[in-house]
Amino acid sequence: MKNAKDPFKNNALPPDGTVNDRRRLSSSVLFGARNEIVIVHNEEEYRLRITSNGKLILTK
């Protein structure tokens, strides 16, 4: 959803009373002030970065 408000902005967990079977994190929780992070999955490193257009790109 483009330009939708993020109800979890700056929070790692959904508000009380929200039923959600998937973990949901705001990108600001993951990235902080950075625009790139490294995710380790099955002993492989992946780069997740925010582009200049505000999109996310995941690369191995």
Rank of each mutant, 00 (worst) to 15 (best):
33 A>M: 08
9 K>A: 07
58 L>A: 13
1 M>D: 10
57 I>F: 03
37 I>V: 13
24 R>C: 12
60 K>P: 13
43 E>K: 04
18 T>K: 14
32 G>W: 08
43 E>W: 01
19 V>G: 01
32 G>A: 10
30 L>K: 05
14 P>F: 03
38 V>Q: 13
47 R>L: 11
39 I>A: 06
40 V>W: 00
35 N>Q: 12
52 S>D: 15
46 Y>I: 07
20 N>S: 14
31 F>H: 06
1 M>S: 10
8 F>A: 08
39 I>P: 00
31 F>D: 05
32 G>K: 04
10 N>F: 06
27 S>M: 09
53 N>D: 14
45 E>K: 12
14 P>V: 12
22 R>M: 15
17 G>D: 15
12 A>R: 04
54 G>K: 03
12 A>E: 11
4 A>S: 08
58 L>V: 11
48 L>S: 01
12 A>L: 02
36 E>K: 15
20 N>L: 12
33 A>G: 08
42 N>M: 02
2 K>A: 07
49 R>A: 11
38 V>E: 14
30 L>R: 06
39 I>N: 01
34 R>S: 14
13 L>C: 07
45 E>T: 09
52 S>E: 15
18 T>V: 15
4 A>P: 00
41 H>E: 11
40 V>K: 03
17 G>R: 01
34 R>G: 03
58 L>I: 13
27 S>I: 12
9 K>W: 02
4 A>F: 05
25 L>S: 09
42 N>Y: 03
13 L>H: 10
1 M>Q: 09
28 S>M: 03
47 R>W: 03
24 R>W: 09
40 V>S: 11
13 L>T: 15
18 T>W: 14
27 S>Y: 05
28 S>H: 07
51 T>V: 04
35 N>C: 00
18 T>P: 08
7 P>D: 12
6 D>M: 03
38 V>Y: 06
49 R>D: 05
19 V>M: 05
38 V>D: 12
58 L>R: 01
54 G>V: 05
46 Y>N: 07
20 N>Y: 02
57 I>Q: 15
24 R>N: 14
19 V>W: 07
9 K>C: 02
19 V>R: 07
53 N>Y: 11
26 S>V: 05
46 Y>M: 06
36 E>P: 00
52 S>T: 14
37 I>D: 01
12 A>F: 02
41 H>D: 11
27 S>Q: 05
1 M>T: 11
17 G>C: 09
58 L>E: 13
50 I>P: 06
23 R>P: 12
49 R>M: 07
12 A>V: 00
39 I>V: 14
6 D>K: 04
33 A>P: 11
27 S>V: 12
28 S>I: 11
8 F>W: 05
38 V>S: 13
47 R>I: 11
55 K>M: 10
39 I>K: 02
31 F>E: 06
14 P>T: 05
11 N>I: 00
48 L>Q: 00
59 T>W: 06
41 H>W: 04
50 I>T: 13
3 N>W: 03
28 S>R: 10
29 V>K: 05
1 M>W: 06
30 L>P: 04
1 M>A: 12
28 S>F: 01
26 S>Y: 08
11 N>E: 07
7 P>I: 09
6 D>Q: 08
31 F>Q: 02
30 L>M: 11
43 E>C: 00
38 V>T: 14
